[in-house]
């Protein structure tokens, strides 16, 4: 039997045999965790706006991001965030908390390799793709907008 056909058959068989994560349960956990983190953000936004009613939406948004990021990093340092993520799945990594956790966990993990080659170069080992792509898209959007606005 030729190898390609054999492999294709085997991969399909494995696909079929591998256990699937509990659908309903895992979706529900993700929903719950995502909603909880967003509610926390909304709560902080309400608190900020009750003190500074004149603050514009963008700045409030930036502030609540900063608060969620800080809380996540502190929870990562305490070693509890990975437990939450195990429960919540996408519910914890899709909110900005996932971005913060990936940077903090890399910083803690690779500090043994030193300040330069450890923390310095490996801090964005996981979060790098998000930052690189994010900046690249913003450049595209900005330049396209600028070119259109010329006409």
């Amino acid at each position: 039997m030729n190898k390609y056909a054999r492999n294709e058959r085997y991969v399909a068989y494995v696909e079929n045999k591998s256990p699937k994560a509990g659908w309903f349960e895992s979706l529900f956990h993700a929903f719950l965790m995502g909603a909880a983190i967003c509610c926390l953000g909304q709560m902080f936004s309400d608190i900020i706006r009750s003190f500074y009613p004149m603050m514009d939406l963008l700045t409030v948004g930036a502030w609540i991001n900063i608060i969620v990021i800080s809380l996540t990093i502190i929870m990562t340092a305490l070693g509890v965030f990975d437990r939450l993520a195990k429960y919540g799945g996408a519910g914890t990594f899709i909110p900005i908390s996932g971005f913060a956790n990936s940077i903090a966990s890399c910083a803690i993990e690779y500090k043994k390799e030193g300040l330069v080659f450890g923390i310095g170069s490996k801090m964005f080992f996981v979060a790098g793709p998000v930052l690189v792509n994010g900046v690249a898209y913003s450049l595209v959007v900005g330049i396209v907008y600028y070119i259109i606005s010329l006409f």
């Binding site: 963008l58 930036a62 991001n65 900063i66 990021i69 800080s70 990093i73 502190i74 990562t76 340092a77 900005i96 971005f99 913060a100 940077i103 903090a104 890399c106 910083a107 803690i108 500090k111 923390i119 801090m123 979060a127 930052l131 994010g134 900046v135 898209y137 913003s138 450049l139 959007v141 900005g142 330049i143 907008y145 600028y146």
Partner: peptide, 25 residues
């Protein structure tokens, strides 16, 4: 502005992530 605007908007979040992670490490 088209070149710098994106990073400026995200700068606070990124800076806090880096700074605080650096500190806790």
């Amino acid at each position: 502005g088209a070149l710098s605007g994106g990073l400026i908007a995200a700068s606070a979040g990124i800076a806090v992530s880096i700074g605080l992670s650096y500190l806790i490490s």
